[in-house]
Design a protein around this nucleic acid. Structure first.
Length: 624
DNA sequence: ATAGGGTTAG
């Protein structure tokens, strides 16, 4: 329940001693925070013959709603000969948009109990409150009232009702209502599309999008952002391109949505073009756009460009800072991430939970165990941020990768939240790095108890067994995987050449230039070996002859993508590679050597972080 | 003087 006498979100600081006020009427203050203060003000108005009309009436409604002074407010409205329902509607709108939208529902019932007849505006605000609360049980009651009041043909109300049912999970009801509507406008269609996309149903959403009689910028934007959020950045970008082709101008929201898709896909070309467009249109002043640009550049492997955008911003939000800190973290620039955090604190910006995840990530990626511990303590003590399961996950990751597997296990046992798969997965990952079969089995048992069907965990344990030459255990595990219907996620790597993305999978010989790629690899291999490269076949899961292992090893997708990139770009140009899984140790070692041989910078984004290979070493300093 | 649809960081 809400506060009864003080209106939230509209509070005015300080109390006014109205009794001793001797100011002239024209400067009379009309602020009040409670019905009592309103009454005092009211009597002062009567004494000084001040017209009641200068009272802020929606404030009267807010202060008196949901209190025994309801009828008192009613009397004021009636004296003023204004539409009473209008005043209550303003109040309902404020309640629906406040932190406690349920107040709007309560006020609606209060209006009913005083026999005040709601109009369509009243209903729209109460429905909005229901949408905010995802409260379909009250929503159905309001829906019933709307029919009783004869307002069911109002298109705006119909649209909100469809929105309400869909957002409360009753999508089939929403579709039924949609089908029965005698008329629909673009908002109706956009609502359906957005709600379908929220549920991840891109196919149905796209069907609606294609069928709708006319599409505006918001229709296109909804579809672009929906594709991006459903993990279909390619589709998002294709649609964005089509939108431009039909001559519609992307607005700020479209730009944010498509930049998110560029970030996901690593589409640097389009991302930079949008950057230029944002400068031209003045969108560049928009903080959210800059925040998304920073994220896009980071995820496309352009830390410097991200930093330039960050520096150019006149105003920043916590998102700007956290994004930049996270960016430095995944590039392995822990010191700079920590420095940026100090700078942020100096400007008076308050860190939130995400900021600390970024900081803990920074520590993890560089093995700063003590610093990470200190931040974990400080976040609650100094900044009042309560750790969530993600923060515990970061800590387990930090300790495990730091080789403190026992400590990590103790930490998990002591944490006040039930550990989830990410927590045990982090421990398992540490066991792989530090070759600890026993602890890995402990973690795996927990993952199995949680009934997590994720092939990644099984593959990691199988790798741990293989590296320890426990071939039988590795085989058993693969059998277990098959029984559970799990398949190893196929690894792929991509590289962009002249704006075209080329994808490779391990062992790939389907590419038209395959022959040349293999030939060039063999040539490189000679130079690599001269510089001390020794193939690390321990990363091969299966037990087979060394020579055979090497064949597999040399056809890893990141190697193919790299060689293709080297063949098709001018000397000296930076190569950017994306990989859906983590880079294997042998590829990591190879890329280091190759960066020196060909004298190029090679930037690899794997599922965890960035590796920037240059002059024979990697930015991760082999800690990952 | 009051209504409905699209957006960023882990």
């Amino acid at each position: 329940m809400s506060s009864l006498y003080v209106v939230p979100s509209l509070q005015i600081e300080g109390r006014h001693n109205l009794q001793s006020s001797s100011k002239p009427i024209s400067t009379l203050r009309t602020e009040f925070n409670s019905p009592i203060e309103l009454q005092q003000l009211h009597s002062l108005f009567v004494k000084t013959a001040t017209p009641l009309s200068i009272l802020p009436l929606s404030r009267v409604a807010s202060v008196c709603a949901l209190t025994p002074f309801f009828t008192y407010a009613q009397q004021i409205f009636q004296q003023l000969d204004r539409s009473e329902i209008f005043m209550w509607n303003c109040c309902l709108r404020d309640f629906a948009e406040s932190d406690s939208p349920f107040d709007a529902i309560l006020l609606f019932y209060q209006l009913r109990s005083h026999n005040i007849c709601p109009d369509s505006f009243t209903c729209s605000f109460v429905l909005k409150a229901c949408v905010q609360l995802l409260d379909l049980s009250h929503g159905r009651i309001i829906h019933g009232f709307i029919e009783k009041l004869g307002l069911q043909l109002n298109l705006v109300l119909q649209n909100v009702i469809v929105h309400l049912y869909a957002s409360c999970g009753e999508i089939s009801d929403a579709i039924l209502l949609f089908d029965k509507m005698p008329q629909r406008d673009v908002v109706t269609w956009n609502t359906m599309i957005t709600q379908l996309l929220k549920r991840g149903d891109t196919d149905s959403a796209y069907n609606f999008f294609v069928q709708m009689p006319e599409r505006n910028v918001r229709s296109w934007t909804a579809m672009v952002s929906g594709f991006a959020q459903c993990g279909k950045p390619k589709e998002a970008i294709d649609l964005f391109t089509k939108m431009e082709e039909v001559g519609l101008k992307p607005n700020e929201v479209t730009v944010v949505a498509v930049l998110a898709a560029c970030a996901d896909l690593g589409a640097l070309d389009l991302g930079s073009r949008i950057h230029e467009y944002s400068k031209k249109t003045g969108f560049y002043k928009n903080i959210q756009i800059c925040n998304t640009l920073i994220d896009m550049y980071i995820k496309c492997g352009c830390l410097q460009a991200a930093h330039d955008v960050f520096e150019s911003m006149k105003e920043r939000t916590i998102v700007s800072w956290s994004t930049m800190i996270q960016g430095l973290a995944i590039y392995g620039k822990a010191e700079e991430a920590l420095e940026l955090f100090s700078k942020m604190i100096q400007t008076g910006m308050k860190p939130n939970g995400v900021t600390f995840i970024s900081l803990l990530n920074a520590c993890t990626h560089m093995g700063l165990v003590n610093e990470g511990h200190a931040f974990f303590t400080s976040m609650t003590k100094d900044y009042g941020v309560i750790p969530s399961i993600e923060h515990y996950g970061c800590m387990v990751d930090l300790l495990s990768r730091g080789g403190l597997l026992q400590e990590a296990h103790e930490f998990i046992k002591c944490m006040p939240i039930k550990p989830n798969a990410a927590i045990w997965g982090a421990l398992l990952g540490g066991c792989k790095l530090h070759k600890n079969v026993e602890m890995a089995e402990i973690a795996m048992r927990q993952l199995q108890d949680l009934n997590i069907l994720n092939d990644g965990y099984y593959v990691v344990l199988a790798n741990i067994y293989s590296e320890a030459k426990q071939w039988e255990n590795a085989a058993k595990l693969r059998k277990l995987m098959r029984n559970k219907g799990l398949k190893k996620t196929l690894g792929w790597s991509s590289v962009t050449v002249k704006g075209v993305v080329h994808e490779f999978v391990a062992g790939d010989d389907s590419h038209p230039q395959s022959e040349d790629i293999f030939k060039m690899w063999d040539k490189l291999l000679v130079h690599m070996k001269l510089r001390g490269y020794v193939p690390n076949t321990s990363v091969i899961l299966l037990d087979m002859e060394e020579e055979e292992k090497e064949k597999f090893l040399f056809r890893h997708s990141e190697k193919l993508a790299l060689v293709f990139g080297l063949m098709n770009t001018p000397p000296g140009e930076t190569i950017r590679i994306f990989k859906n899984l983590r880079v294997c140790e042998d590829c990591h070692a190879s890329l280091k050597v190759i960066s020196e041989i060909v004298n190029r910078e090679i930037i690899v984004r794997d599922r965890n972080r960035f590796h920037c290979f240059k002059d024979g070493s990697c930015s991760c300093r082999d800690y990952w």
